[in-house]
Design a binder for these strands. Structure first.
Length: 869
RNA sequence: GCGGCUGUGGCGGAAUUGGUAGACGCGCUGGAUUUAGGUUCCAGUGGCCUGCGCCGUGGGGGUUCGAGUCCCUCCAGCCGCACCA
């Protein structure tokens, strides 16, 4: 395929060129790829969207970044896979069903169809033959199959776990559905309730997940730090305190055994068996424990709630001193984490300190601070390491030495043992919801779970459901849950819980490699494409999704389905898309938010914002600050309107130019206008150039304005290449192209030599812009290079080193660190010459005349600093 | 509460390895073209003085010939916290 001979229309009309260019990509299957061992592969993946209805600007940003990287890599000659699909299960589909009576499947399919159209209109180079929707049985059947494998290996298990329960709606609530302790629809006070749920044993891989972070040298350091903290590996001591007047002992875990002699209290969860035991004869305590259950299970809620407690009337014996220690129930200790009990050391733990202050418990100092450290136990706990005091035979030991001495003692005397503990908890994958992948398990008469056998998969989620009832419709559907045990006619009951949607998003990257595979989960193609070379998505996924996906990949590896250890080689976390907010406050205090599209902003003659008015009534509204685009603040910008008004290239250019990809992007209508203006200017320069007829090739001397311009062309290639491939700073890449364009457009030379340089410059701009604004780049390139390959097949431009040669350089002269002159020096000038010329400069002498030169610092080719005293 | 991040003109941002602060764009001011402009083009645009000077990167302190960049400390805002995706 070659470019036709063409000129450019006078006017840039994206609505005409973009569909035509996209049609060529479709007709020639430009982005459909296959494994090719002869070429270097590049797998570029953006986090697939939840089909919520319409694309939002966050999607546009995410997918433009991915497309820019993909197209750049294509131009580098790599075999590039860039697929797209749908994270199609989830809660919003159920909400739509409840609110509007639309079946979740229908709602989801319609959303997918609309959003697919939007993605195509934006010109993203996806291989659509690999499209996946996770709600397809062809997809989730393999997840069900794999769950069976994990069950066989003992990597999944069932146990009781606590959920948020809405007693009016009789349903389990997600944390985000609990607002101020109440259900978001019913308004009922939420209770904690324990129900049996499925877990995947991610803690069995905790060490590997932690250690392999060191291999991910192309991941952002903050993401790795967050994962390390999330896994939270700690070395500590599991201790047993014998109960007084009761049988048994109270087990706790501590990372600070050096503070063992400072224990003045034990705190247990309200759900702890000991608290339950003590509640039996103590109505006040029973009431307190019941009250503790009236709270969301969300960690942020638990940790920020007021610290409350009540004594159980039960004591334990200190294993070293024999002292009597009271046991308290406390609302900040969670049953689901560790042993559900902690030892309280008020002097050396801030939370314990506050708890002790609130309840009049003693504060016993056992760690003395090192010299120079602050320690005021009247004000706060001392939480640093130090030297032991008030600890009998352990006095004088450092915290580190005491850790070992006390651990040895505990192990000798049998009241404790060393233990590695993780903050990471096993992955709870059960959801009491309808719109998800059915958990492929049946229960016999005895209630024991049995995995579905492969021949009975998929366990299909029924499409026709009734949302009139309470909770998940599956629990009311006998036709779904009545079944038989595999391979028999014995009646059995099917599991009605579904999987956490993070399950589906944990292996879609691998499935994209062989999306059409009918008789297996993955095949050898996954090993050609995996790992993903570049993964792109929001920073909000830094821990959960990215940790689950890493874990799942290791599970797939250990099942022999993939060979690599990690799924994502390089990670880019993009920032949020934000916009200004506007509101009015009613007398009741209620805020009404207005869309930026409906508001006019007033400015003074310097452009400062002085206020804003609602266009509809001309009355003022308050400016609320820049926040993440959201429905609740009504500050979203619909990309669809922008695409219709400006075309895909302008939207893509703006989102890449406005901010670096990993920082937040602040929306600006007028800056979009600016992006459109730039493309019109580029188009017009190319049009005017081509209208002058064919270019006669000419040799350009390195000296002179045309040589300088050629140098700028090639400096721009070097700068943009580095920005796009290494730095991922598309905003500065675009700025560099704009600078080059400004230089080219001010060239007033229609001689053969001048036109030859302009031709080269315009070709380079077409190529450099091709990943970002592929439609205009394709049309311009075709007009500039008739008979050549289309821009999608053209290589990335290379730097002509001979064009870069300079004869002179600028050197800044400072006196005491302040700039006083700029010198033009020959490139090969030595330090002595630079220093001599700097000191000879007239303006420099004005500032050196009154003192003596004490020192001269010379940074080669850049700067001279003269220190005068 | 815990973990992570970010603070630079009127605004978005640039300054890549401690070396010219404010690239590029928006906005604004003035001018030109046009029947008209929400078009296009030209010039100016950190602040204070309007001289070649001084000040200036959230606040305060420090290291250095030199700090937006490194160290200490304080403040403000944002993201995540396990059933939103």
């Amino acid at each position: 395929m070659t470019n036709p001979t063409a000129t450019l229309d006078e006017r840039y009309d994206p609505s005409a060129i973009e569909p035509a260019v996209q049609q060529r990509w479709r007709d020639e299957k430009v982005f459909e790829v296959r494994e090719d061992p002869a070429r270097e592969k590049f797998y570029c993946l953006s986090m697939f969207p939840y089909p919520s209805g319409r694309l939002h600007m966050g999607h546009v940003r995410n997918y433009t970044i991915g497309d820019v990287i993909s197209r750049y890599q294509r131009m580098q000659g790599r075999n590039v896979l860039q697929p797209m699909g749908w994270d199609a299960f989830g809660l919003p589909a159920e909400n739509a069903a409840i609110e509007r009576g639309v079946p979740p499947a229908k709602w989801t399919r319609e959303n997918i169809a609309y959003m697919r159209g939007q993605l195509q209109r934006l010109g993203f180079g996806y291989d659509w033959t690999r499209e996946i929707a996770t709600c397809d049985a062809d997809y989730y059947r393999w997840e069900q199959w794999f769950f069976g494998q994990l069950l066989e290996k003992g990597l999944v298990y069932k146990k009781q776990a606590t959920v948020n329960w809405d007693p009016i709606d009789q349903t389990v609530l997600a944390n985000e559905q609990v607002i101020d302790g109440r259900g978001w629809r019913s308004g009922a006070l939420v209770e904690r309730r324990d129900i049996p749920q499925w877990f995947v044993r991610i803690t069995a891989y905790a060490d590997e997940l932690l250690d392999d972070l060191d291999k991910l040298d192309e991941w952002p350091e903050p993401v790795k730090t967050m994962q390390r903290n999330w896994i939270g590996r700690s070395q500590g001591l599991q201790l047993r305190f014998p109960l007084i007047d009761h049988d048994g002992e109270l087990e706790v875990y501590t990372t600070r055994p050096d503070t063992l002699l400072g224990v003045t209290c034990m705190a247990v969860s309200a759900e702890h068996p000991l608290a339950q035991l003590a509640s039996a004869g103590n109505p006040a305590l029973a009431a307190f424990c019941a009250d503790c259950r009236m709270n969301s299970v969300a960690e942020a809620v638990v940790e920020t709630a007021e610290k409350k407690g009540m004594p159980l009337g039960i004591n334990v014996r200190h294993p070293l001193t024999g002292a009597t220690i009271p046991v308290w129930a406390a609302n900040f200790v969670l049953m689901g984490y560790g042993t559900g009990a902690v030892m309280s050391v008020p002097a050396h733990d801030q939370r314990d300190y506050e708890f002790a202050q609130a309840h009049g418990l003693p504060v016993r100092q056992v760690i003395a601070p090192a010299a120079g450290e602050n320690c005021d136990l009247a004000a706060a706990a001392f939480t640093e390491y130090g030297v032991l005091i008030n600890s009998g035979e352990f006095d004088g030991l450092t915290s580190a030495a005491a850790f070992d001495a006390i651990a040895d003692r505990a192990e000798q005397q049998g009241f404790g043992s060393r233990k590695v503990q993780y903050r990471l908890r096993d992955w709870l994958v059960s959801r009491q919801r309808y719109w998800g992948c059915p958990i492929p398990v049946v229960y016999g008469e005895d209630g024991e779970p049995i995995a579905e056998t492969a021949d009975r998969l998929p366990v299909r989620l029924p499409d026709q459901v009734d949302f009139a009832g309470i909770g998940s419709p599956l629990k009311q559907m006998a036709s779904f849950y009545e079944t038989t045990l595999p391979g028999t006619a014995t009646p059995a009951r099917r599991e009605t819980d579904t999987f956490d949607t993070f399950m589906e998003s944990s292996w879609y990257a691998q499935r994209f490699c062989c999306a059409d595979l009918q008789d297996g989960m993955l095949d050898q193609r996954a090993n050609y494409w995996m790992p993903v070379d570049q993964y792109i998505g929001g920073i909000e996924h830094a821990v959960l999704h990215l940790l689950y996906a890493r874990f799942f990949h290791k599970l797939l590896r250990d099942a022999g389905l993939v060979q690599s250890d990690e799924p994502f080689k390089r990670l880019l976390t993009q920032g949020m898309v934000c916009a200004e907010t506007y509101f009015r406050r009613a007398d009741t205090g209620k805020l009404t938010w207005y869309s930026p599209a409906d508001v006019d902003v007033d400015t003074d003659d310097k452009g400062r914002v002085t206020g804003a008015r609602l266009r509809a009534d001309g009355q003022p509204v308050e400016v609320g600050g820049v926040e993440k685009m959201s429905k609740s603040k009504n500050n979203g910008v619909d990309p669809q309107h922008l695409i219709e008004r400006y075309g895909a290239d302008t939207v893509r250019l703006y989102t890449m130019a406005a901010a670096p990809p990993d920082q937040r992007l602040e929306w600006s209508d007028s800056a979009v206008e600016g992006a459109a203006r730039f493309l019109r200017r580029v188009w017009r320069l190319a049009h005017d150039h081509l209208a002058r007829g064919p270019v006669i090739a000419a040799t350009i001397p390195a000296d002179g304005p045309l040589g300088d311009l050629r140098r700028r062309i090639h400096e721009t290639i070097a700068k943009v290449s580095d920005d796009v491939s290494r730095r991922y700073k598309f905003n500065t890449a675009i700025a560099a192209v704009m600078e080059l364009f400004n230089a080219l457009s001010s060239l007033d030379d229609t001689s053969p030599a001048g036109r030859s340089v302009l031709q080269e410059g315009l070709e380079v701009i077409s190529l450099l812009l091709a990943p970002i604004t592929p439609h205009i780049a394709e049309v311009m390139w075709a007009a500039l290079r008739p008979g050549d390959k289309p821009v999608t097949e053209a290589g990335w431009p290379t730097v002509d080193e001979t064009a870069l040669t300079r004869t002179s350089i600028e050197v800044v002269v400072q006196v005491n660190g302040k700039k006083r002159a700029v010198l033009q020096l020959p490139v090969d000038a030595d330090a002595a010459t630079a220093q001599r010329l700097a000191l000879a400069d007239e303006n420099v002498q004005r500032f050196t005349a009154d003192g003596t030169v004490r020192k001269v610092v010379y940074v080669k080719g850049k700067l001279v600093n003269i220190v005068v005293g």
